[in-house]
Each structure stands twice: as structure tokens, then as C-alpha cells.
Design a protein around this nucleic acid. Sequence first.
DNA 1: GCTAGCATTGGGAACGACTCTCAGGAAGAC
DNA 2: GTCTTCCTGAGAGTCGTTCCCAATGCTAGC
Lengths: 134, 134
Amino acid sequence: MVVAQRHTRQRAEILELLDDVDEFRSAQQLHELLRARGSGVGLATVYRAVQSLSENGDVDVLRTPDGESVYRRCAQRSHHHHLVCRSCGRTVEIDAGQAEAWAAQVASAHGFDDVEHTIELLGTCAACRAAGQG
Amino acid sequence: MVVAQRHTRQRAEILELLDDVDEFRSAQQLHELLRARGSGVGLATVYRAVQSLSENGDVDVLRTPDGESVYRRCAQRSHHHHLVCRSCGRTVEIDAGQAEAWAAQVASAHGFDDVEHTIELLGTCAACRAAGQG
DNA sequence: GCTAGCATTGGGAACGACTCTCAGGAAGAC
DNA sequence: GTCTTCCTGAGAGTCGTTCCCAATGCTAGC
């Protein structure tokens, strides 16, 4: 049976916040932002929400180098990858067709099946580079 | 001044263990394996060792989906990627020239500089597939 | 609108990976 | 052998995340 996803104020607030924010944010950051907006949503609830949202494919999850999970509501619901600015967090959604073809080919060359891939790009965007040099 | 890396029994044991093991292992697993071998190396020491080894490029680090860092001594010291069997952990080191060219090109198309990339492949190897089907 | 049933919530405790602290020990220079 | 300095190990601490459970509040049925 399908699990009934109840519509609650908390979940709505979290979704609304995710729509307002363009960068990847951790659950803790989202929690703080909600508090700053005057919402009393609990941390555990934020964790539960982003988890179920990511399971449904409504938000994308990334792992930061220090092991924190960060979440973002992406324009594309289909499979894609991210090019993230290490300085300002600006995120570009990229189609990874070429890299995926490569991944599939490499995998089959080594006799591997059911291959998933992790492909993320981290760089410095033009604006931050200009700001850094100026 | 260059930091002097002292040669200790513990570090030697950890390196030796890493040479014996072909799959990616977490610090905790390495610690257990050392204990099983009768070595009294402490967990903190294992963490310190793998950290400094990975900083020197002597071991490769990966993050498991559940946020654990896993380490492996690779044949190639130069930059490469991994194709890992999700079932038995068998690891193939792959040259990622093509994917890297793609990454660099995508990045520059969006005005990004100094791009690092994370590219890892996870699949089921031929042996495990055969075993699973049999 | 009221009620019952049940998923959701929230606060705090628990958990797991990892790091820090600090006193004792060992490696390397002389 | 002695001395200096770095390394070690046990346990406490940190931090992100999940669990627990009583209270809350959706939702459906009336």
C-alpha cells in the first residue's frame, strides 16, 4: 500500500524555503533559516522532510567534503549533475550525457553491470574569480 | 620547514595491512583487522595514519554513501578513478581522461575555473552477478 | 462542526564517525 | 647513552544524524 504523505504546515514551510534558496543547504542550515523566519520547526522534522523529499526525487542531495549532506530543489527532476562554485555556492545543473556514456562503456569493458555513478564538479565561478582578483 | 615523518612500528603495520587488502576499508575496519592480527594499534593512530597517508597521496580515499571514509592503497599514484563492486568490493582503477576532458569543457563553458571533480562508479562485477543468478 | 484514528512533530537522548587531549613512550640526532 | 621531539593510545569530546515517545494536529466520516 502507498504511504499517505500528510500535508502539514512544517513540510510546506520547508518546501517553500527550498524554493527560495538557490544553493545547496544542509539540514541544519535549513533549520536555522526556518527559525530565523519565525518558524518553530524542529531539527528532526527538517531531517525527516529532506529525507523523504530526496527519496521522492523532489530535492537533490550532495555530500560536502566534510561529510555533511546538503539539499537543493533543482529545476530538472530528471537525472543530472552539478557544477558548484566553491566560493559562493552558485550551482549550475548540467546534463551529463557524455560522461554517462563513458561510465557505461568503462563499466561494461570491465564486466560490471547496474552501474551507478557519482559525478560532481566543484570550481570557482567567473564572478568570484573577478572579485578575488579585483 | 618540512615536517619529519617518523618511522614507527604502528605506521609500518598499517601500511603493511593496506598492502595486503585490495578493497577500500574504513579506518575502523583497518583497526579491527590490526587487532585481529594481534597488533595493539589504537584507533586514533589508525585515523592519523590514513589521514597523513592520504595527504601524501599514498592512499586513496572514498566516501561511502553513509558518510564513512574508506581507504585503499592503489597501484597508480597518479590521478585516477574507481569502479567498485557494490557486492564484493572488488576495485578497478580506471583512467578517466575522457571524463576529465568533458568536465573541463563543461566548466569553462559556464565560466568556471580551477575545477575539481568527483567521479566514482559503483556496479556489480561479473563474478557477483553470476553468483547472484546461480 | 465534532470526533476518532493515526501519521507527524519536537525535544532530548542516543549513536556513530571522527578528532582532541595529554601523559607516557619511542625514534632519531648527537 | 642522552636528549629532544614527535608519536601513541585511551578516553572524553564534537558534530551530524537518527531514534524514542508523548503530545499535536491532519483527515475522513458523521
